[in-house]
């Protein structure tokens, strides 16, 4: 039984596009998204599942992309922060992080924003305790939690407002 560095050709469904990549089985999803797909919004922090910076959505649910091999993601829909908005048209969650000063250095932000977005998709009107519990798996070392929680509350209010106007 010889360990192999042979690559396997796989197709990853990322942000609505099919990405054909050639990977070693041992390559982490976080590294493949960054290096092979060029999605540098996937931030690599602790690489052992503690910090949550590498959070991406797998079929709409947050996961640690450092705790999954890229070969395992075949057949699933992946979403990174790049899919949420553009500089001109921010996602309501991103807009709320800006307005509520929900980020300082920005390292934890993609993971925070994606976790918050997944929460609001599941529960459009979460209370503060639910938001805190949900974000407890994402560490911010600028100690910005209060503003981050404020941002998610603001995002929920904005989404409700947009929905009302759209209706």
């Amino acid at each position: 039984m010889v360990a192999t560095e042979e690559r396997v050709a796989i197709t990853l469904a990322v942000n609505g596009r099919d990405e054909q990549v050639s990977v070693e089985p041992r390559w982490l999803l976080s590294d493949v998204l960054r290096r092979e797909c060029g999605l540098k919004g996937v931030h690599v922090g602790c690489e052992h599942g503690v910090c949550g910076a590498c959070t991406v959505l797998l079929d709409g649910e947050p996961i640690r992309s450092c705790l999954m091999f890229a070969v395992q993601a075949v057949g699933h829909q992946l979403t990174t922060v790049e899919a949420l908005g553009t500089a001109d048209h921010l996602d309501p969650v991103q807009q709320a992080f800006w307005e509520a000063h929900g980020l300082q250095c920005g390292f934890c932000t993609p993971g925070m924003v994606l976790t918050a977005r997944a929460l609001l998709d599941r529960n459009p009107n979460p209370d503060e305790e639910t938001i805190r519990e949900t974000l407890s798996g994402n560490l911010c070392r600028c100690t910005g939690y209060q503003f981050i929680v404020d941002a998610v509350l603001l995002a929920a209010a904005k989404r409700a407002e947009d929905a009302e106007q759209g209706a």
Binding site: M1, A3, T4, V8, E24, R26, F69
Partner: peptide, 26 residues
């Protein structure tokens, strides 16, 4: 902070998985 190389098997049945583990040993 990166795993060592390994061979990756993705079986679809329990029996296949057991076969892979038996063949791989320790």
């Amino acid at each position: 902070m990166k795993p060592v190389r390994f061979r990756y098997e993705a079986p679809h049945t329990v029996e296949e998985a057991v076969d892979h583990l038996s063949a791989a040993g320790i």
